[in-house]
Design a protein around this nucleic acid. Structure first.
Lengths: 114, 114
DNA sequence: CAGATATCAGGTTGACTGACATTC
DNA sequence: CGAATGTCAGTCCACCTGATATCT
């Protein structure tokens, strides 16, 4: 969710959920938790008062960076048995599958030194 | 579970769960369901009366084959965007990761025509 | 008015925990 | 006796459903 917010910018909860494949009702409790930790802020959207404009706080960005770091470590551990070119090949193929089946493009998993 | 039984032969519930990474208590309900459909039979183990020796029935084998077929279709749909040599490469790398992290070896996912 | 949004209450499910009787 | 096995009851969590009030 933090990564989505950082990527898409301030956005309504419904739209965020739609892009991430998370249900509206689940997004409520997820954002409650993130807001309780001060990682995001819910502000009323001026242009459309049905919506909340969700903003990531600086603390949220730090947390996101920390998570990216843990992700990189986890990915390194997962791909450890493969040689570097194989890791690159594997993640490339995996990204093509992801993009084909979901339309979602990301470089978030490119933590492999090629 | 059916694939594990077919691969390992008659075996206790606990041992089956251990090899498949399924908890003992969950194995009970799973086998209840399979037994209710007549796909497996629970027989008391003669050598060790704490154990149940689980056997796959002919109906269980048919079901397993049908599932293998559906698995092949699902895998084909998943790998559809990749060219045949890429599919082979991808499944090979994936199997190496699986084997490295779990020690589990299988040819069950080799449904790709290379 | 139809449709979208945020929210909440409730149900279903899979996976885990803790306990127990039986057997080795 | 300690350890393993099969079983059950209960917990926890992710996910989904249906409803409601507010707003466009």
């Amino acid at each position: 969710v933090l990564a989505g917010l950082e990527e898409f910018g301030p956005i309504s909860q419904a739209e965020l959920g739609r892009r991430l494949g998370i249900d509206r009702s689940d997004m409520v409790s997820t954002l409650n938790a993130l807001a309780a930790e001060g990682l995001v802020v819910r502000a009323p959207d001026e242009g459309d008062r049905r919506r909340n404009a969700i903003r990531v706080t600086p603390a949220g960005i730090s947390t996101l960076f920390a998570l990216d770091d843990r992700l990189a470590q986890a990915q390194a551990a997962l791909l450890e048995p493969l040689a570097p070119p194989e890791r690159a090949q594997f993640t490339r193929l995996l990204q093509r599958l992801l993009e084909h089946h979901t339309g979602y493009q990301t470089e978030r998993f490119d933590h492999v030194d090629v």
